[in-house]
Design a protein around this nucleic acid. Structure first.
Lengths: 229, 229
DNA sequence: CCGGTAAATTACCCAGAGGTAAATTACCGG
DNA sequence: CCGGTAATTTACCTCTGGGTAATTTACCGG
């Protein structure tokens, strides 16, 4: 009783291909899904599992089941649990960095956008990237990774690009205030990424909200926080 | 509510307790530590483990090892892993709620403190409670609990009291702005607790910082965020 | 039609973690 | 000095989960 068996997998079997003489057999052999597409499916399922439960609590068998496939396939494609995790890390880090970079350095003529317009733009970019895979954020920001492990280091490294962008933004805020304390800057950066995480967490528990709706809501909240009270 | 409270010595390693004929043997038999004190030690170790790695990734053996004791003792004292987790939950939820409540409704004569003074007061209270067990926060706010499980429900229930306090504070801010949207209020509450979590996370990675130092830093950061930029 | 290869499965192994029964050691009151 | 009880360990069971070897099924080019 190890892996998926019998009933139809997550994705309904593609309309044309293989299909043994019997109606729909969960037997061995190719299912006509090329490796590249399978890898995408596996990656998507893995991101969701890892993001939801954290690296340690996520199980390979569970990911395989979600895709409608068995464990060994994951191992032939990704080598190991850590290998799969690393692939997830790279995948989403790349997408997030690209989007956030674009949001922070936009219009070609002239300088960057006005400082106070940056946070909403960044949030919009993040929500857009995460729309279909909201848990992805928590793969990157997985607090349960054992400090000192390779994975912890890898996650830290992949976060570095995003954290760097966050740091440049928050540092400006503090410098404008005459605050040059590097620890304050580091802490504020942490608070910013933590806030994004909190927003994504809220979004996950409100699946009906669209990315643009989230963006609008965040604009309201940011305004409320900044107003004098 | 617990076990007998004796008049036995109270310092860490009692000067003259048991000790077999040999110098120091890891053998069976009592070590002279009364149940109540052992339970405290176990609870402390468990909070740290659960907070660091999340419920699923934490191991009983690891907790036992940290205390300098073996697994069966944990089971005779707390019944099961979930039982121990529940005990942790109750312990820290109680301490946090008490402290935050006190911070939000202080001076007996007159109304509560000025609205803008509340957040720093709450943070000070939280940092004070968590000073010696910073990871405790993440036992309460453990994102890796499987939704639908008993533990998830229990954690949610224990968070409820704190979240309620957060909600009352954040709702005021929004109402002062003319914003009555309940979803906005819920999201802002989530952002606030998330921010506290982010600050605690930063604190954990900077062990040399004292609670008062954290409080001061947060005051600076709050001011910086609220100032026009 | 035949073999090669890609896509998958079945059936395992093994370490580790939750959990338990039974024995062991020390103390304390009579 | 004796027995009861609290504190604690040793040794074990079992199930889950990462990981692997060998095998099966389907397609494709000659």
């Amino acid at each position: 009783m190890d892996t998926a068996r019998g009933s139809s997998p997550a994705t309904p079997s593609p309309p044309g291909p293989p299909r043994t003489r019997s109606g729909a057999a969960p037997s061995a052999g190719t299912k006509g899904v090329p490796r590249a597409r399978r890898e995408e499916q596996i990656l998507a399922a893995a991101v969701e599992e890892f993001g939801r439960h954290g690296h340690a609590a996520a199980s390979m068998a569970s990911i395989a089941r979600r895709v409608g496939v068995t464990k060994p396939l994951l191992y032939t494609y990704f080598g190991s649990k850590d290998g799969l995790y690393l692939a997830c890390l790279e995948h989403i880090a790349h997408r997030l960095v690209t989007a956030v970079e674009a949001a922070m350095t936009p219009d070609p003529q002239g300088l960057g956008p006005a400082a106070s317009h940056v946070p909403p733009r960044v949030l919009a970019a993040v929500f857009d990237v995460l729309e279909e895979q909201r848990e992805a954020w928590f793969v990157l920001y997985d607090r349960t990774l054992k400090p000192g492990s390779d994975l912890h280091a890898a996650a830290h490294a992949h976060r570095a690009a995003i954290d760097g962008l966050a740091a440049s933004g928050t540092a400006d805020v503090l410098r404008g205030q005459g605050n040059e304390d590097p620890l304050d800057a580091d802490a504020l950066k942490h608070v910013w990424t933590g806030t994004v995480g909190a927003l994504v967490g809220w979004w996950i528990s409100h699946p009906e909200q669209s990315a643009p709706e989230m963006t609008a809501r965040c604009a309201r909240l940011l305004a409320a926080i900044r107003a004098p009270h």
